Simulated assay, not measured.
Amino acid sequence: MIEIADIEAAAERIAGHVVRTPTVPSPGLSALLGAPVTAKLELLQRTGSFKVRGAAAKLLALSEAERAAGVVAVSGGNHGIALAVTAAALDVKATVVMPRSAPVRAVEIAQAAGASVRVTDDMDGAFALTAELRRDGLTLVHPFDDPEVVAGQGTVGLEFAEDAGELTDVLVSIGGGGLIAGVAAALRARRPGVRVWGVETQGAQAMSEALKAGGP
């Protein structure tokens, strides 16, 4: 779906809009696991998560007409915050659709950044409202199912490959799959001998269930 050239282009595009976060040894994890561990500190990223990379990559790839019309995203938290903050910086009108279960703080941050936040009863309602808004001309900024977003998230892997020392295994969290898709693509090109592992939260293991079932 994406190549290393797409990730490199995304890195160039989003430079100045995101932080090159530190890559540091983790004495605590190293002691716990009995092996040297290096961590990429995306919690120090603008808005507190890697999501701003994909949001910036997508917004900066839009045409003038698309940016003028505005964008919309469905989010349970971090993606909506990232889109709201990045859209404000780029003077793009953003609408974030969140289910009622989203953290109140996430709603407040997105609103404070200038986004129009629409709250629905559940995630099904959020997707239905988003589809309606797209028909009105807004461009969807999907949290993971978009090549531009995946390339943006892949810049985490690009930086990690450049900044980390010797690596044998890299562990990446999986939600929707955008982060691990981008990171794996970057590492496959830059550190082809490294094994990439996906890690899911128990109770939210959609990716491993899909792999087991042979499909979504």
Score class of each variant (00 low, 15 high):
I4P: 00
I4V: 08
I4L: 10
A9P: 06
A10E: 00
A11M: 06
A11P: 07
E12K: 14
V18Y: 06
V18G: 03
V18F: 14
P22T: 07
T23H: 02
V24H: 12
S26R: 13
S26L: 05
L29N: 06
A35R: 04
A35Y: 00
P36A: 02
A39K: 07
K40N: 06
L41F: 04
L44C: 06
Q45H: 04
R46M: 10
T47E: 05
T47A: 06
G48W: 08
S49Y: 08
L60M: 04
A61P: 06
L62I: 10
L62H: 10
E64G: 12
R67C: 13
R67W: 15
R67A: 13
A68W: 01
V72D: 08
G76D: 08
N78A: 01
H79G: 13
H79L: 06
G80W: 04
V85H: 09
T86E: 07
T86G: 09
L90G: 04
D91I: 12
D91F: 13
D91Q: 15
V92Q: 10
A94E: 01
A94S: 08
T95I: 14
V96P: 09
P99G: 04
S101W: 07
A102F: 00
V104T: 14
A106Y: 09
A106I: 15
A110L: 08
Q111G: 15
Q111H: 15
A112G: 10
S116G: 14
V117A: 07
R118K: 14
D121Y: 02
D121G: 08
D124E: 13
G125S: 07
G125C: 03
A126R: 04
A126G: 05
F127A: 09
A128W: 05
L133D: 08
R135M: 10
G137I: 11
L138W: 11
L138P: 11
L138I: 10
L140T: 02
D145W: 06
D145Q: 10
P147K: 07
V149D: 04
A151F: 03
G154E: 00
F160H: 01
A161V: 02
G165P: 05
S173R: 08
G175S: 09
G178W: 00
G178E: 01
L179K: 02
L179C: 03
A181K: 03
G182L: 07
G182F: 01
G182W: 04
R188W: 03
R188N: 10
R188P: 04
A189L: 02
R190H: 11
R191W: 00
P192G: 01
G193P: 06
T201K: 14
G203V: 13
A204Q: 14
L211C: 05
L211K: 07
A213K: 14
A213T: 13
G215N: 15
